[in-house]
Computed example of a mutant assay.
Amino acid sequence: MTEIDNSGVDQPKGISRRTVTKAMAWSVPAVAVAASVPAYAASPGIITLDGRACKLPGRSNDTYKGYAFGIIVTNPYNVPITVTITNIELGGSTLAPFTIVNLDGCTLVGTSGVVPAMTTLDNLVVLTSDAADSANDILSANYTITGGPGGSEEISAAVPVTPPVNGASCDDFTTAEKDCLETFVVPAT
């Protein structure tokens, strides 16, 4: 006897694919797992390091024993968000004090700033002072987000070779950008 489906086409004898599929669905237990995950967890992060880095060594300028790290801040949400950097460490040593400088216009932002909805700020620099040493290591930063989904995130990346910002050895920043960075004294915490 031949099994016929609704289309009127003859099916081969034996077990149908539909029967096998039904059996498989019942043989695997259904487990529902719910986890509280912030909406931005799947994104690469609000703040990313862009790979630019230079040292501010010794007493060569007003910012003593510091670093300049290029960052990109992205707000993928339809509402403004406030991003506050709460901590920066290099190789486990805290880099404080620190501030953010917007190289577009050479303006001091501070440790917190509002990012308009659906905006990327791609010419920012975290400027630090009073580093324990000038070694290249793993840089990590913690920051909070107010508005949008809220919450906090952490970034971590290996710091590239960081030549002194003075002179020609640091070519990650233009001459005008280096001149801008050298005008700021990182406020004490």
Rank of each mutant, 00 (worst) to 15 (best):
E89R: 12
L121P: 02
V114L: 11
S140A: 08
D133H: 10
D130V: 08
V109W: 07
I85A: 01
L127Q: 09
N87F: 07
T107Y: 11
L103F: 13
S93W: 15
V126W: 04
F98Y: 13
C106P: 10
T99K: 03
T86G: 00
F98N: 07
D133Q: 05
D122F: 06
S140C: 05
D133A: 07
G92M: 14
N136W: 13
T99E: 01
P97H: 05
V101P: 02
D133R: 04
L90W: 14
T99Y: 00
A131F: 08
I138A: 08
L121Q: 07
D137V: 12
P97G: 06
S93T: 13
I100S: 02
I100V: 15
I85G: 01
S112P: 10
I88V: 12
N87M: 05
T99R: 03
T107Q: 08
F98V: 09
A96K: 11
M118A: 10
A131I: 04
D122M: 07
P116H: 08
I100W: 03
S112N: 03
L95R: 15
V109A: 02
G105F: 15
G92Y: 15
T107M: 07
T86W: 02
V115G: 01
T119D: 04
V125G: 04
S93M: 10
G105I: 10
N102C: 06
A117T: 05
T107P: 03
G110V: 15
T128S: 09
A135L: 14
S93A: 12
L139S: 11
D133M: 11
V109P: 00
A117N: 06
G91F: 15
D104Q: 10
V101K: 01
L95D: 01
T128M: 04
L124D: 07
V126Y: 01
L108K: 09
P97A: 04
I138D: 00
P97N: 09
A131E: 03
G105R: 02
S140Q: 07
D104R: 08
A135G: 12
L103N: 06
V101A: 01
G113D: 11
A132W: 15
N87Q: 05
T128K: 11
L90T: 01
F98S: 10
F98T: 05
P116G: 06
N102E: 06
S140K: 14
L108A: 06
A96L: 05
A96R: 09
T119N: 06
T111R: 13
P116V: 04
I88R: 08
T86V: 12
A117K: 03
V109Y: 08
S129C: 08
T94W: 01
T120H: 03
V101D: 01
T107F: 12
G105L: 05
A132G: 05
I100H: 04
T107D: 09
I85D: 01
T128A: 05
F98M: 09
G105W: 10
V114K: 08
G92A: 09
T128C: 04
T120R: 06
V125K: 02
T111C: 02
L90S: 10
D104H: 12
G110P: 15
V126Q: 01
